[in-house]
Nucleic acid binder design. Structure first.
Length: 801
RNA sequence: GCGGACGUGGCGGAACGGCAUACGCAACGGAUUUAAAAUCCGUCGGGGAAACCUUAUGGGUUCAAAUCCCAUCGUCCGCACCA
């Protein structure tokens, strides 16, 4: 009799063993082929580990443990994305230094992660708030600044009233702050910006060279939002600049019956004196400014606007005068901030024209423009369009673009939805921006030998009421001298957003203690790119896009050897609460990993997270299901009682090898649930037999070990084998998979009517003959003509009538 | 509105175009136990008298459809006045 399975003894034992033998540290030698597996480093929040973290971590832990057994030198690192608002808010509320809060949270997370037995290389731990780390975040920023990719601009920003901080577009969700849910308003602020738009095309194009799951690629492409069209110049009487518009439908130029400019468009100021209804226009502008972006788009149904009375534009195709309106359905931030309105063929223009009684002209036949705008570009012929008449839409687009170019009225133009990245935050707990403002020299970068520029100590971390950074109070720190001319100068008080440190952390892991470079050339050459990166879909248009941008920049300046940071990107589905809703404190459906580990053990927890459903799908938590996984491990444990004597055998070789194959292949495809199901089925088979050989159990432990490493090591040690992590991944024998006899289903006209056993060496002809003669089949086809017999895999279909 | 994913037992879910419901949960029966828990063994989608029917619904392609195509309904996710 063996004692009962007790993870609370086994798990700490093996965790200590792994830590002492340092067996999961990446090898210094670069002889072996490398494998770099990466999970998104956690933000050490006060809430502690979420059940979502282990889902991603276990998935790649399985891959990394398997890779080591396959002979790879594996890097599976861990670190902390520790700058950020929740920590700072907690610090403010409790009057503790954010660095102390961070330290406590990191300690808590570390303990939680270690209890789960991930094979992280803890010797390479990084922390974005460590000055020796953010020295290099600052270094990269200065490089961007040098190359003109960081610039300061007066821009309307999304300002969160709760956090008192500017947000990137990506951080505004449903019109409110992603973090605190507070109202977001528009404020004009001078902000540091990064020119991610300069990389827009390459960020699209190079998706072709990486292996990302398709929905990630699609979301990134949509976010960057490339559109092809033309920029067209409309003349305005008495305004020599004219009014430029961007359109993807230059073919509809003859149908442009009016123009619309956004409320912020400079033409209003330029022509102020000639706009007869200027007070109404000013009033409209003021009303638009008071609305947030969210409110503006909330009112989609009701188009509003005011004509610029006295202003007339000329349609360059027809030569006709057309009115110019101002309306907030046109955005200053996209294209030129002005549009040509073609109500016949654009839904928004159609609504606007209907609302204000503007003329609607059909220029593409095929729809009913009285009912709705007709905007199909694949099916329609040009009408009422002079020299374009009779052409198909696509033909007309290229023809008129050429015509515009020849007349000097326009040009082919590509536009992107992607905006430059707002890189300033008016907060304390972030990397200081290493620039100094000098009255004489402007913005001057800190010399590299003065990095890191360390955060000053403050009494209060709260931003000022006007939203300026708490660093404005660090008088001594701010006042410095210009590195260029020596005159008194002031430091930048904005800090970097949380995304800075996470944009390059995977590079630092390759050489985490290097004080001379962000990482050595040699380390980067060997380890990058990351071979496999798993993370959340929510980072697709944030972290993942930002880090691709930074990486491309570092590639351009010769710092990294590859144009893309991550060779492969996968994503896990979210774990929902037992009630099928998103886990949250307020819903009271949060599952704490510690509780599950306490009750069932880390191995059962890991097993359940991998077994609960398809890895890429969202899935509700079930504590009963988790207990079922514990039952399975109990059954594996008791296999020790069924071990046969020396020299005895079972007839399980075929099933065992089938399982090795299934599990090996399913791990690679992240089909963890079916891999585990296959092992459960195998164990059920051994229970049916009531016996197992020592070697068979050993092999089962090898393939189970990536999921349940503690138990696998423990039983394996008791069997007298060397530690699993030092052993090779088992190979399956294809020959063993072939069984002597297989069961075939016999179908008649596609319906299963009978089954029969046949020798697996039987020929097609033999199978067909046997099927027709089968005792249950023969009477059914008697008197009928057999038209065809299809024998495929394990089905024979007889077509007869 | 646009883009994406998806719809299979009481539940989570399996199923290279080839025997639908693997594996697990829940439920039920039995063994063991003074009893319970644990464990072991077993049963287990629905409808129909039956032939059969049944993978959201209706069509189609095919020898063969949960799987491919078209339409409809529904759910989830992302983007959203992007010209």
């Amino acid at each position: 009799m063996i004692e009962r399975y007790d993870p609370s003894i086994i798990e700490p034992k093996w965790q200590a063993h792994w830590e002492q033998t340092r067996c999961f540290e990446a090898e210094a030698s670069h002889e072996k082929p490398k494998f770099y597996g990466l999970i998104e480093f956690p933000y050490p929040s006060g809430m502690g580990l979420h059940v979502g973290h282990p889902r991603s971590n276990t998935a790649l832990d399985i891959i990394c443990r398997k890779r080591r057994m396959e002979g790879f030198n594996v890097l599976y690192p861990i670190g902390w994305d520790a700058f950020g608002l929740p920590t700072e808010n907690f610090a403010i509320k409790n009057k503790i230094h954010p660095a102390v809060v961070t330290k406590n949270n990191v300690a808590h997370f570390t303990a939680q992660l270690k209890r789960l037995g991930f094979s992280f290389d803890w010797s390479r731990e990084v922390n974005t708030t460590d000055p020796s780390y953010y020295k290099w975040s600052q270094w990269i920023f200065l490089k961007l600044f040098e190359r003109g990719l960081a610039y300061k601009a007066e821009i309307p920003i999304n300002f969160c009233m709760g956090c008192k901080v500017g947000l990137a577009n990506e951080e505004v969700v449903d019109g409110v702050c992603e973090r605190c849910g507070g109202a977001v308003v528009r404020k004009i602020k001078s902000q540091w910006m990064l020119k991610i738009t300069e990389y827009a095309q390459r960020l699209i194009d190079d998706l072709d060279m990486v292996d990302y799951i398709e929905k990630v690629k699609i979301q990134q492409r949509n976010w960057i939002g490339r559109s092809d069209g033309a920029e067209v110049l409309f003349e305005i009487e008495g305004y020599p600049d004219g009014l430029k518009v961007f359109t993807t439908r230059p073919d509809t130029l003859f149908g442009a019956t009016y123009m619309v400019v956004s409320p912020e468009h400079p033409i209003v100021n330029a022509l102020e004196g000639r706009i007869k209804n200027i007070s109404a226009v000013r009033e409209y502008q003021a009303a638009a400014a008071r609305k947030s972006d969210f409110e503006r788009s909330e009112l989609v149904k009701d188009k509003t606007g005011v004509p610029l009375e006295g202003i007339t534009a000329i349609n360059p195709a027809t030569g006709e005068p057309i009115p110019v309106w101002i309306s907030d359905y046109v955005l200053m931030g996209y294209g030129t901030g002005a549009i040509m309105a073609v109500p016949g063929h654009d839904a928004r223009d159609w609504e606007f024209a209907k609302a204000f009684g503007l003329p609607i002209v059909e220029v593409v036949a095929g729809g009913n423009i009285e009912e709705a705008a007709f905007s199909d570009i694949n099916d329609g012929q040009m009408v009422n369009s002079g020299f374009l008449n009779g052409m198909q839409v696509k033909e007309a687009i290229s023809f008129i673009t050429q015509w515009l170019v020849e007349k000097g009225l326009g040009e082919h133009k590509v536009n992107y939805k992607l905006r430059d990245w707002v890189f300033s935050r008016q907060r304390y707990w972030g990397e200081p921006i290493p620039l100094v403002y000098c009255e004489h020299c402007g913005w001057v970068p800190l010399p590299y030998d003065q990095l890191p520029l360390v955060l000053p100590e403050l009494e209060e971390y709260l931003p000022a009421e006007d939203g300026s950074s708490p660093l404005t109070r660090a008088t001594e720190w701010i006042n410095t001298s210009c590195p260029k001319c020596g005159a008194p100068a002031k430091r930048e008080t904005d800090t970097m957003p949380q995304w800075a440190g996470s944009s390059w952390y995977f590079l630092r892991y390759t050489d985490p203690n290097n004080d001379n470079e962000l990482a050595s050339k040699e380390a980067l050459e060997y380890w990058t790119p990351v071979d496999w990166y798993n993370g959340g879909m929510e980072h697709t248009t944030l972290h993942l896009l930002y880090s691709r941008f930074w990486h491309k920049f570092l590639y351009d300046i010769g710092v990294v050897p590859t144009p893309e940071p991550y060779q492969k990107r996968t994503s896990h589905g979210m774990i929902l609460g037992e009630n099928n809703e998103k886990m949250s404190k307020s819903r009271g459906n949060v599952i704490n990993p510690d509780d599950i580990v306490n009750e069932l053990g880390a191995d059962s927890f890991r097993l359940y997270e991998m077994f609960m459903g398809a890895f890429d799908q969202p899935i509700p938590w079930s504590t009963m299901g988790a207990r079922g996984c514990r039952r399975f491990l109990d059954r594996v444990w008791r296999l020790q009682e069924m071990i046969k004597g020396e020299g005895e055998t079972t007839d399980m070789r075929g099933k065992l090898h089938g399982c090795i194959k299934k599990v090996s292949e399913d791990y690679e495809r992240m089909k963890y649930n079916t891999a585990i199901a296959a092992m459960m089925a195998l164990v059920n088979d051994f229970y049916s037999k009531g016996s197992i050989t020592k070697e068979e159990l050993h092999t089962l432990l090898l393939i189970l070990s990536p999921v349940a490493p503690h138990m696998a090591e423990e039983i394996n040690e008791r069997l007298g084998y060397a530690p699993i992590h030092t052993l090779a991944w088992p190979k399956w024998d294809e020959a063993a998979l072939v069984e002597d006899e297989v069961e075939l289903a016999i179908q008649l006209n596609g319906k299963v009517r009978a089954r029969m056993m046949v020798s697996s060496s039987a020929t097609k002809e033999e199978i067909e003959a046997a099927a027709v003669k089968h005792e249950e089949i023969a009477p059914l086809i008697e008197g009928k003509t057999v038209r065809k017999i299809i024998a495929v895999r394990n089905v024979v279909n007889i077509v007869a009538n």
